[in-house]
Nucleic acid binder design. Structure first.
Lengths: 155, 155
DNA sequence: CCAAAACCTGACTGATTTGTCAAGTTTCGC
DNA sequence: GCGAAACTTGACAAATCAGTCAGGTTTTGG
């Protein structure tokens, strides 16, 4: 249960784009410079994010990448999923690697409640917009810790 | 952001031990049989859990493994940490793999709020005891979904 | 006392994930 | 046009993780 490198760096790239004035693309090279990553890696991450519909590329000499929606309209959940993401409901108990043909606990699976916890976490992240991370740190943290489950949207 | 195989299978082993009558050890071979895993793998997992203080081994001919505390006193957070776990606060921004000497955003790091989200998730799991997963599935799910953040302890 | 049953441990292999490289294609300024 | 600057893409190498193996040590029943 950890945030992968790909998720972290992909999110950093998006945060750079989110700070950009609307409609002005940022080049891969510039993002790479600002984040201290290789241009090749940033390209790979942005390509992943573009395929997921979160970013838009502008080709040609004065091209670069933009967010395809405003930071308010992109959730952390979407981003995490685009970058390698959560296991989906359909995969549960089908990806079993043990040496039985199927999950031993088909009927009242002891592990399934754990998946429910995972989905709960996911739904929490679905309600936090990218814009929430742009604000001042203390404010974000305060909001996150004080608000209850149903008001996790930080804005 | 995914639950690793090690976390899932380790938790399964613990759930087997949790179903055992107090003080009666369960052998690795029996757990392996019930979960459809290899004995070698179960040994590895239980060894990890023992080093974290969650299980206790009894050597010798009629030995096996027990939980070292009751299922009520072991939290999912502890288990996940024992099995490979969360990044800890101290590691943040020191494990940066980019080509700059340190994190570009030292002062008001755009990524740190994401870590806060991770810690929030962790504190949520710290409040869910292993015993919560022993109950009937529907009940667990209902409890999880209906209760607010401050009452996530399912019992 | 000794053999069987159990745990203990570190090395090893295969699979997956990370991150790089290289050779494209597209666009635009001049 | 044409070359520079940008995105596109697939193959690849390195690092990490999952799971196995082999050879221990400890305990106990007979």
């Amino acid at each position: 249960m950890r945030i992968t490198a790909q998720e972290e760096y992909g999110l950093r790239c998006l945060l750079q784009l989110a700070q950009q004035p609307e409609g002005e693309p940022l080049t891969v090279r510039e993002i790479a410079r600002r984040e201290g990553l290789s241009a090749a890696y940033v390209e790979k991450l942005l390509h992943l994010l573009s395929r997921a519909g979160l970013t838009r590329s502008v080709r040609g000499q004065s091209g670069g990448y933009c967010l395809s929606r405003s930071p308010q309209q992109i959730s952390l959940g979407e981003i995490i999923r685009a970058l390698g993401g959560f296991v989906s409901d359909a995969e549960i108990c089908t990806q079993f690697t043990g040496n039985l043909d199927c999950c031993v606990h088909v009927n009242n699976c002891g592990i399934r409640p754990l998946w429910r916890v995972a989905f709960y976490i996911q739904s929490m992240l679905d309600r936090i917009p990218l814009s929430a991370l742009l604000h001042d740190e203390q404010k974000v943290e305060r909001n996150l810790m004080e608000t209850g489950r149903s008001s996790l949207i930080i804005v």
